[in-house]
């Protein structure tokens, strides 16, 4: 458990640092995906019980928590939808500005 938790933290930190440091929109979207994967890893590893088998009630008496695995599937779908919409936005932005750098998006000032 601590091993995977460290992996989750490392992935989270990589994602956040990449999101902050990059100005390329594609790389920012990749960073976002890395952060999402870290959360998914957290979900699956949190459900793990030491020595337990796959959640098949007929075969395994002692099984891991099956719920987070189902939740992870849904979260993957949500992540895919977000990434898809982000990528399509980047394509449209490229048509307007001929660049994929977030530094060229300065029309609006927040």
């Amino acid at each position: 458990m601590p091993g995977t938790l460290i992996a989750v933290l490392v992935l989270l930190i990589i994602g956040i640092v990449a999101l902050i440091l990059n100005t390329n929109l594609f790389k920012m979207i990749m960073a976002l995906t890395i952060i999402e994967s870290a959360v998914l890893l957290f979900a699956v590893s949190g459900a793990y019980i030491k020595g337990a088998g796959a959640p098949l009630a007929d075969i395994n008496e002692n099984m891991v928590n099956p719920l987070p695995q189902a939740l992870t599937l849904t979260a993957i779908v949500i992540g895919a939808a977000t990434t898809a919409i982000a990528l399509s936005l980047v394509i449209k932005i490229y048509k307007h500005t001929k660049s994929v750098s977030s530094e060229d998006l300065t029309r609006l000032k927040g």
Binding site: L19, L32, I35, I93, H96, L105, R107
Partner: peptide
Amino acid sequence: TRNSLEASIKYLFTGSISSV
């Protein structure tokens, strides 16, 4: 339009981080 795309991607990044 260019403004709406820019606003949308800004919204998307903030929104995704909060959902995480």
